[in-house]
Design a protein around this nucleic acid. Structure first.
Lengths: 186, 186
DNA sequence: AGTTATAAGCTAATTCTATTAGTTTGTCAA
DNA sequence: TTGACAAACTAATAGAATTAGCTTATAACT
């Protein structure tokens, strides 16, 4: 058996991300990751702190990828257009990387500064997009909570097959966002 | 070793529901359920079809309990008041029975008529409450999707500690629902 | 270049989980 | 009272995570 050094943390996380996106985060096992990397399960522990640690690393990767996606989507746009753009980008990201997306949802541990910072950075993007609406500090928080609820709720229900009827989901999402943005102007 | 007959399906599901509410659905194990019922794990199989079957039964129980809660909340109310009432009731239910609530989320299997019927019944309540708004068939579907997204998104983010800042969550929810209902009138 | 310390990957063993097979025995109905 | 059924059991299997400890490739330092 060859014992060449082939792994590093990034390779492990990348393999796990693929599997989680394909089969769902809850189905992710170290055994699968190891098999995909042609390695024995205990070898993973040299790069990742067990299954829980791997999930945390996935969460970080997910947060950062989502943040990057949102930033790119908002570039060059402002106001309602920017808001619609980041909402669409978020939804698309969740569809294409549902495993990473799911990993990013669990609240970070209180002592996990890195993960908390990544979360804060994502919120920063939203705050920037909401700038033109000139909300006071409290209203801003309520608004962000509302926006997150809408987008997260829609995306997860959609991904779990909650919208069974043959009616266009894109249209549903557009109307919901329209409603939200409309309310923002009053 | 006493071998009295003590179990039935309801007892197993009830014990599982308590554990899932307390520790989270993903932490639920047959071992825990068996221990709580003073029984060996394989005995559970006489009443429940393994872990997957138990989760399905939990989903059914969760759906029915949620439906019941919403019906009670809407009784005697109409229009906006009824809409706010069922939204609040749904949120409260999710807080108090997060395990059951989580179980009810996964889309039912295509051949599981009982579970699908329970889901349809829940939707029926929402449809009834939306009656006064006189939406056409398509608009009704978009509206239900929006409402579910809002409430589900808010509730899950809240339950997972996604709203860290010290700002009143009740107020956030009220504003969001206000925005939704406002949009419904235009 | 040769040597050595480190760490990567391995095997082996433990524990916890779900699941199935097959046995025993309490319970209910004839 | 008895006999069939079903409930609860024991035992065994399989797959997952994790830890301990061994071997050896690799890279750093003479």
């Amino acid at each position: 058996m060859a014992r060449k050094r082939t792994l590093d943390r990034m390779a492990v996380v990348a393999a796990a991300a693929e599997l989680a996106d394909r089969d769902g985060l809850e189905r992710l096992t170290l055994a699968q990751v190891a098999e995909r990397l042609n390695v024995r399960v205990p070898s993973l522990y040299n790069h990742v702190d067990g299954l829980a640690g791997l999930q945390r690393d996935l969460a970080l990767a997910g947060m950062r990828a989502a943040t990057d996606t949102l930033r790119r989507a908002a570039v060059g746009l402002a106001g309602d257009a920017a808001l619609f753009a980041i909402a669409d980008a978020y939804r698309t990201f969740a569809h294409e990387h549902y495993g990473l997306y799911s990993a990013g949802l669990r609240a970070p541990a209180a002592d996990d500064a890195e993960l908390q910072a990544a979360g804060a950075e994502l919120i920063e993007v939203v705050i920037a997009v909401l700038q033109p609406y000139r909300l006071d500090e409290i209203a801003l928080i309520h608004t962000i909570r509302g926006l997150r609820s809408i987008v997260h709720g829609f995306v997860t229900l959609e991904a779990q097959g909650g919208f069974g009827l043959p009616v266009d989901c894109d249209e549903s999402f557009r109307r919901l966002m329209q409603l939200f943005v409309g309310g923002l102007h009053t």
